[in-house]
Design a protein around this nucleic acid. Sequence first.
DNA 1: AGTTTGACTGGAG
DNA 2: CCTCCAGCCAAAC
Length: 113
Amino acid sequence: MREYPDKMSTEQAHIFQDDVLNIVSQIPRGWVTTYGIIAAWAGWPSHSRMVGRVLRYSPESVSLPCHRVVNREGRTAPGWSLQRTLLEQEGVSFKANGRVDMQRHLWEPEEMK
DNA sequence: AGTTTGACTGGAG
DNA sequence: CCTCCAGCCAAAC
């Protein structure tokens, strides 16, 4: 993992965005990962909210499996009920409380790039 | 230049 | 399980 300063420059923000999209593209079918894990692997552990921003607003994300990103509790994105359907279609199971069974489906990147 | 806004997280009640 | 809250921080207002 790379070293990181306290604050992001605009250029670093672009790099961060590219890294986030790259990691998301690698999430295997039938697995999920979290905003925090992606942020940490992109080198900015405290920027989980920025990961959400990238997936929500970046045009490139439409061609990526961004439905495989949930929060740490296994909750799907607010206002995006289709996300659960997409995940169930690829075999991801949800618990009775409506959250992804993270114990069984959490995926973590093993290598960068 | 100050304030608000979240596809977040962790902890408290 | 739920809601509320503080901390988070780039981006949008």
